[in-house]
């Protein structure tokens, strides 16, 4: 009940701050580019529209996850709105979970609306809609969950600017971690150890990227999907646990 109230309040804040206006830009981008693509390209345009659609969904969602996520807790402390919440019978971890799920609701609605837009354009263009596309959408959302949890974790102990820098860095490293491991193989013992540990600690965000498979119609096995989902959700739980421990000890000055 309390977590839900805080989550819905956070969602309401996002709505009233007109966060979902980004959907308009997405819609314009999608419609505009689909019109252009069908006129300019000969064949293959369905692949292009999928590529463009999934990429922009990912970028918009990640930007929201990072830039709203980093201020989830920070803003409450800076604006001192947290004072009246923590003094009520609300355990601190419930507040944190409420804030997290609030942004997750926003991201969910954002993703659903964008997905409907993309599917609409694909239907209009008679592009084939496969199960794989829905799997890719699901994993994009899972990536948002992880990135939001990273942003929330930083937001429990550092400033908004630093949180943004750290979360962006983790996002970039998270997409390059496979390359880092390969790069490590070619380095000396120390370099290999360092890059290997980064590979294992950082979230491997490339696991959530099925764009290539959708475009090239390469099926993904159910077990691989389940494994990725378990990996993503475990990562989220771990991050939220660490965030709760830090938040529990914090003084709100």
């Amino acid at each position: 009940m309390r977590v839900l109230s805080i989550a819905l309040n956070t969602f309401r804040e996002n709505l009233r701050e007109k966060l979902l206006y980004n959907l308009l830009i997405f819609a314009l981008l999608l419609i505009g580019s689909s019109v252009l693509l069908t006129q300019l390209t000969v064949g293959e345009w369905d692949r292009l529209i999928i590529d463009l659609g999934l990429s922009s969904m990912n970028i918009f969602g990640v930007l929201i996850a990072i830039f709203v996520g980093i201020s989830l807790v920070n803003k409450e402390i800076e604006k001192r709105t947290i004072y009246t919440i923590v003094s009520k019978p609300v355990p601190r971890y419930e507040f944190l979970l409420g804030k997290y799920f609030g942004l997750v609701i926003t991201l969910f609605i954002n993703t659903v609306v964008m997905a409907v837009g993309l599917l609409g354009v694909m239907l209009y263009l008679n592009a084939p809609i496969t199960m794989l596309l829905f799997e890719a959408l699901g994993l994009i959302f899972l990536e948002f969950l992880v990135v939001t949890a990273v942003a929330l974790l930083f937001s429990t102990f550092t400033s908004a600017t630093l949180s943004a820098i750290f979360t962006l860095a983790i996002y970039v490293v998270g997409h390059l971690s496979n390359d880092l491991k390969l790069f490590g193989e070619k380095m000396g013992e120390v370099g290999k150890a360092v890059l290997n540990s980064i590979y294992y600690v950082m979230p491997n965000l490339e696991r959530f990227n099925l764009k290539g498979q959708v475009i090239h119609h390469v099926d993904v096995s159910a077990s691989q999907l389940v494994l990725t989902a378990v990996y993503g959700l475990s990562y989220v739980v771990l991050l939220l646990l660490i965030a709760s421990v830090i938040f529990q000890r914090r003084d709100f000055q």
Binding site: E13, R80, T81, Y83
Partner: peptide
């Protein structure tokens, strides 16, 4: 509890 110079969720 009422904090000093309270700031509340002003969108509500």
């Amino acid at each position: 509890f009422l904090p000093e110079s309270p700031y509340f969720y002003d969108y509500l």
